[in-house]
Amino acid sequence: MYKKLISPSALPWLLLLGAIVCEIVGTSFMAVAARSDSYLGYAWMAGALALSYYLLSLALRAISVGVAYAVWEGLGLVGLTLVSVWLFGEKLVPQELAGLGLALLGLACVTLGETHDEEAAA
């Protein structure tokens, strides 16, 4: 019989992951464009950030807005920090590393605390 490639409960999280990747890409292009005065960089930034918000809005159909926004913003922060170290040669001090670790811990707590409709009905 036919099997679905993606379970319905995983799709919103994949959309959210796509939104996070687009946010990281868009914000990275913002940094590139600001440093090089490239109008093309600003166009890529605008397109990637618009797609990020669109994918986030689709994910909100199944994930609560507080959880989705926290995950989107938190993982975007961590991802963008990694990109800034890797691509732009920025350095992190121990306080920044500790803050990123605490942000990830907070994201885990928020995400694990989300209730689902099936659980709420029980």
Rank of each mutant, 00 (worst) to 15 (best):
L75G: 00
A68I: 03
G101K: 05
L100G: 08
L15R: 00
G47M: 13
L77N: 13
L17A: 15
K3F: 15
K91L: 13
D37P: 01
L100M: 14
E90L: 15
G47K: 07
E114I: 08
S36K: 10
P8A: 14
A68T: 00
W86L: 13
L55V: 08
L51F: 06
L112I: 02
A68S: 01
G47Y: 05
V93E: 07
A59Y: 08
A34M: 12
E96N: 08
R61Y: 10
G74H: 04
A10G: 08
A19E: 01
E23V: 05
L97G: 04
L51Q: 02
L102S: 10
L75T: 03
W44A: 12
L15F: 03
G76V: 02
R61T: 01
G106R: 04
S9A: 11
A98E: 04
S64M: 02
T111M: 11
Q95E: 06
T115E: 14
S52G: 12
E118W: 12
G66C: 02
P12N: 12
I63L: 09
L75Y: 00
S57I: 01
Y69W: 05
G18F: 04
S64L: 00
W72P: 01
A98G: 09
E90M: 14
I24M: 10
G89D: 02
L75D: 00
D117I: 06
L107Y: 08
G41I: 05
A121K: 14
V67G: 04
L92H: 03
K91I: 13
G47F: 13
P94M: 14
V67T: 10
G76R: 06
I20Q: 09
D37E: 08
G26D: 02
V83T: 10
V71I: 14
A68H: 04
I63R: 02
S28A: 15
G76I: 03
Y53F: 15
S9P: 05
G89M: 02
T115K: 15
T115M: 13
Y69M: 04
A121Y: 04
R61D: 02
K3R: 15
P12M: 12
L55M: 11
S28G: 10
A19T: 00
V93S: 04
Y54L: 07
L75C: 06
G79L: 11
S84E: 08
L17N: 06
W44N: 02
Q95N: 09
S9M: 12
A120F: 14
F29D: 05
V78P: 04
L102K: 12
S7Q: 15
L92W: 03
E96H: 11
A120G: 11
A120P: 06
V25N: 00
Y54F: 14
A70N: 01
G41R: 05
G66S: 07
A10E: 11
A46L: 01
P12Q: 11
A98Q: 09
W13H: 08
A98L: 15
A50M: 12
